[in-house]
Design a protein around this nucleic acid. Structure first.
Lengths: 375, 375
DNA sequence: TTGTAGGCGTTATCAT
DNA sequence: ATGATAACGCCTACAA
């Protein structure tokens, strides 16, 4: 190893005091004589010393850090979730350690173990399914856990997310009510949420006595691939008049393919995306999309953890109303030129309906659809 | 606080041994009797125990972790860099802690301090400029540092990246040589690299006796905004015949705006993106883009750190050839239908020229443009 | 205002 | 094959 790093002892030696005073300088500067403090600052600044947080983690078994595991950094959806998590955490002086699982439960298990080995105070998970070992570990290590994005039937601990099956079910049903006869579903990158959405689509189709038609590919979601899937779908199902997409990338790919094929959107074919990403607002016509409150979900997850951290402090068991911390969040409909005006109105009315059914939670951010351009 | 977490001592108590043997079970299982090991495994699995890495960080002052600071999670470019970093780090049993700076030097300073407080063994930076305090800190804490993406004139320590000024200079010059008379530059999100590219554009223009025309906005890069900038540019500079964009999002927005305005691409207007992201391959015509070896840069950064870690082990000062670890990487040209066939050929020939000028480094990944679809 | 002693959970080292 | 001891860097608690 190279030369050892600078420690508080080094600073103390230079200044001619004990490391305890240096420690105080960082944690309670007002308890240090001004002259001493100045000398310490000089030395610290000059040397560029940064106190290690590691001993504190050991001693207090609290790291002031929370972990988060997302499936992928290249999915924009999670960039917003991270933003919500980090902004909220920073406000409360917590550091966020982020890992990614590549949509794989075993990888998630490893990454969670990794995070636990850093003695994090809480953890945020964005996939709805976990290995048994993961559940046992979170329990054994006594780490509060907030699940977000989806709404697991049996959360490990706490959850704030939305019911993707229901969202797709309601939207499919609305399009059917509005007169579409052959909507199809395009999914790629078969993660759990894609599958939940597909279920919602299928349920609505069956309720209308229609046969679900599904195109998918296990490959990573790209515009080009979505285009190919759409072309294939048209061969097998030429009468299709609506395309429900698992995400906005797929929807944009589908839209571009329709335009290349001279299909009129929304007259011949309605297209509905999922997530409400900015990319949908760039197309002509602008994409209609089921928008999820991504930033808000990140915030909620952190707030649930903080609520728990604080609840653990006072040992009085009086207040602690053991609310069921499983919070269902609404979606909204963005854009809208890839469905007819009537369809857009119906989709929005239905989304509002759901929104008003939900019980408001005190932890909910004021601005639920932060970061989403409604248009 | 809640109940304390499970520790090795707890496992040891249950099994009826000392924690030392439990420690061995994790670090050198072959030194533990099979029967003992089995009992330990049972208890560990049952309790879901995960050893803390924190004490080891303290004791060995090596954490087997490297830090990385990126400007933003919502920029796809960095998703690929992260991929390269993580894949390479995982191969060598290092954990990666990722932070983001929001394109802000002071935020970067804070995030780096944060990482240093975790006793990371090395750090990767993706922005080319840093505060003085940051430099002093990295030096004091004796943390090897690899800068990537750009190629700083005076690296803190080591660097592997490309010269964005030169890349844009060469491409602008090539388009001018091919007959374009009024290329403009569109930048958004004024980070340092955007500015470097702009400099390259300006230099080429001036060498041809032309006046640079620059549009930019400090807002976050979005498709829609790029469209507005393009429309504005056309008002002030109606004769523009090429648009050099700071990134692919801007280029796609520009392309969509051109199409809405019935401008022929590439005949009336050539469009050149930057980064070579997948989005460019979805447009019709496919976007021509200056592609950077993002995944490879992530890998290189990790390899530079590992090289350093290993070099520090053997105290014999013999081998350690003090190579100047400042490695210049090439770019390549993807797609190509938004420039003419002749222009594409010229751009590619020039990129190849540069590539052959560069001295190959033994650390360079075999597949330099991993993750980039050349088309 | 500053100093001293002890401990957090693990591992290196040296026994047994 | 297993155990005992010390040490890592900082902070809490107490003392001066």
């Amino acid at each position: 190893m190279g030369k050892p790093r600078v420690t508080m002892q080094d600073i103390a030696n230079k200044v001619g005091i004990t490391k305890m005073t240096v420690s105080r300088y960082f944690n309670a500067p007002h308890n240090v004589a001004k002259a001493t403090g100045d000398k310490i600052r000089q030395t610290v600044d000059f040397l560029g010393f940064v106190p290690s947080r590691v001993p504190a983690m050991l001693a207090q078994s609290s790291s002031k850090a929370i972990g988060a595991v997302i499936p992928s950094f290249s999915n924009m959806v999670f960039a917003d979730v991270i933003r919500g998590i980090e902004e909220e955490a920073q406000t409360h002086d917590y550091t966020v350690l982020i890992m990614h699982s590549g949509y794989n439960m075993e990888a998630e298990e490893r990454q969670i173990a990794e995070l636990l080995s850093y003695q994090i105070d809480g953890i945020i998970l964005t996939e709805p399914q976990h290995t048994d070992l993961t559940r046992r570990r979170l329990n054994a290590m006594n780490v509060p856990c907030a699940e977000t994005m989806s709404l697991p039937a049996q959360p490990i601990d706490m959850a704030a997310g939305l019911d993707h099956r229901e969202a797709m079910y309601r939207c499919t049903k609305t399009l059917l009510e509005q007169g579409r006869r052959q909507p199809i579903y395009i999914g790629v990158r078969m993660d759990i949420r894609t599958w939940q959405r597909q279920e919602g689509y299928e349920q609505a189709m069956r309720e209308y006595g229609l046969t679900p038609f599904i195109m998918d590919s296990c490959e990573r979601s790209t515009f080009t691939m979505a285009g190919s899937l759409m072309r294939e779908a048209l061969k097998s199902c030429p009468k299709l008049d609506a395309v429900l997409c698992t995400n906005d990338d797929v929807a944009v790919g589908t839209l571009l393919a329709c335009q290349a094929l001279k299909l009129r959107v929304p007259e011949d074919t309605a297209i509905l995306g999922y997530n409400g990403l900015n990319i949908g607002s760039a197309t002509v016509p602008q994409l209609c999309s089921i928008a999820t409150p991504r930033v808000a979900m990140g915030r909620m997850a952190v707030r649930l953890l903080l609520e728990r951290f604080n609840a653990q402090e006072p040992a009085d068991a009086s207040a602690a109303a053991p609310q069921p911390r499983r919070i269902k969040l609404p979606y909204c409909i963005t854009g809208g030129q890839t469905v007819t005006a009537a369809e857009l109105a119906a989709l929005r009315a239905d989304a509002d309906l759901l929104r008003h059914e939900l019980t408001p939670d005190p932890l909910l951010p004021e601005q639920l659809f932060e970061g989403i351009e409604l248009l």
